[in-house]
Amino acid sequence: MIQRFIELGEGYGDIYELRQLMESNQERFMHGFVFVSKTKDGHPVVSVAAAFRPAQEGNFMPIYLCREGVPDGSKRLAVFEDKVKQLGHEPIRMDVKHSSQYADTKLYFGHLIAILRLNHYIPPMQ
C-alpha cells in the first residue's frame, strides 16, 4: 500500500478545504492528527492532517496535510478538531520536529509516516 502525504497548504483557507474533504469522505475517514512543533523562535505551531482509507480500487492511502501555518490554540485548529469529533473520532496530538529541521520535506513526510505506522494509526508497509 502506498501511503503519502498530500500537502494542501499552510492552514489558512485550505483548512476549510480539508474539513470539506473529511465531510464528503466520512466513510473513508480514519484519523485526524495535530502535529505540534516549534518554530526557530520557539513559538508553537501545528500541522493538521486527515488520513483516509484507500479507495475501493487502488492501493493508495492519502493523508491530507496543512503544514505548520496554524498557531496552537487558534480558531482554525478548533474548527479542525470539532470536525474530527463530529465524525466520531478524537484528534490525535503528537509532538514532532519542525519540518525546517529536515533537508527535504520528503524526509519529513517519511519520518511522520514511520511514526504513524509505529503507533498503529496507519497500516504497516506491505
Rank of each mutant, 00 (worst) to 15 (best):
V84F: 00
I15K: 01
Q126E: 15
A78F: 09
K106W: 09
P62S: 04
A114S: 15
M94I: 04
E17D: 11
P91S: 02
Y16G: 06
M1R: 09
V36N: 11
P91N: 04
F80W: 05
F29Y: 02
G42H: 02
H31K: 10
R67F: 05
S100C: 07
F5E: 04
H89A: 14
Y108D: 04
L112H: 00
D104C: 08
M22T: 03
E17K: 11
A50D: 02
A49D: 00
D14P: 03
K38R: 14
C66L: 08
F52Q: 05
D41E: 12
L87E: 02
S99M: 12
Y102R: 04
I6N: 10
R53G: 08
E90G: 08
A103W: 09
K83Q: 15
V96H: 00
G42Y: 02
H89Y: 09
A55W: 04
L77Y: 02
F60D: 04
H120G: 03
E23C: 07
G9F: 09
D72I: 02
E90Q: 14
Q101E: 02
Q101K: 07
H98M: 01
G110W: 01
S37M: 02
L18E: 01
A114E: 15
K97Q: 10
L87H: 03
G110M: 08
H120L: 09
K75P: 05
G32T: 02
